[in-house]
């Protein structure tokens, strides 16, 4: 506990001079949050943030890439990118068994994923200045988790960009997401393929700069 507190303190003091905005990448599991985080980090720092996987809840701890400097139109915007665990209301280890996982590993992954959701919600409460809300555009956006999270983000008055990810997939339906959250700007993208990232960076600079 103390270690985490110390790390957090040292991080926040380290960058307090520049005060980069901490941008949380939020969304349900398997929306492509880590893929996007890695895309942003690789594009601007050369490093990755964390491992990507098609198995849900690969990211079970919030990971942070500090000081990501994004250059747009001659200006530069510095942000901290926080990749958060996928938020869900139910975690069931049996879901992981379908991915050839042993039961013990699945149960542990499930427990860690639950801790990860708690951590993500905690970060949302205290530690982010803006949100990139990532959705799988092949999935129905009208879910309890999306409604609740976007509602919390709105109640916090955090700037938020909705990202309709996975446009490279055939079933992608960006319009459905636009209709679900008409009060926010929705950008289509494929974090995996890097499609439309220029516009995403433009908007990041505009929203969070």
């Amino acid at each position: 506990m103390g270690l985490i507190t110390d790390i957090r303190d040292s991080i926040s003091s380290l960058f307090s001079a520049q005060d980069p905005k901490r941008i949380g990448i939020y969304g349900p599991p398997n929306a492509g949050k880590t893929t996007l985080a890695n895309r942003i980090a690789r594009d601007w720092t050369g490093d990755a943030i964390g491992p990507e996987s098609h198995i849900p809840h690969e990211t079970r701890r919030a990971r942070r890439k500090e000081n990501v400097e994004i250059e747009r139109n001659g200006k530069s915007v510095t942000i901290d990118v926080v990749d958060t665990p996928g938020v869900t209301t139910k975690v069931d280890y049996t879901e992981f068994l379908e991915h050839d996982m042993e039961k013990d590993d699945a149960v542990r992954r499930s427990r860690e994923a639950t801790e990860g959701v708690a951590e993500a919600m905690h970060w949302l409460r205290e530690d982010v200045d803006g949100v990139l809300y990532v959705l799988d555009s092949t999935e129905d956006p009208f879910t309890q988790v999306n409604t609740m999270l976007v509602g919390i983000i709105e109640s916090q008055d955090l700037p938020v960009l909705i990202l309709a990810n996975k446009t490279d997939l055939e079933d992608s339906n960006v319009r459905r997401i636009e209709n679900a959250f008409p009060q926010h700007e929705t950008l289509p993208l494929s974090a995996l393929e890097g499609d439309n990232m220029d516009e995403v960076y433009d908007k990041i600079a505009e929203y969070f700069g």
């Binding site: 938020v87 869900t88 209301t89 542990r108 639950t114 801790e115 959701v117 708690a118 905690h122 919390i152």
Partner: peptide, 28 residues
């Protein structure tokens, strides 16, 4: 309300409760 353990490896989460609580659950 914040985390309901149905059985080992099966959880139900109350997002609002998790969000509202000041303390931070770090280890189940």
């Amino acid at each position: 309300e914040s985390i309901k353990v149905l059985s080992p490896g099966q959880y139900e989460l109350n997002l609002m409760e998790l969000y509202d609580r000041e303390e931070y659950i770090i280890a189940l």
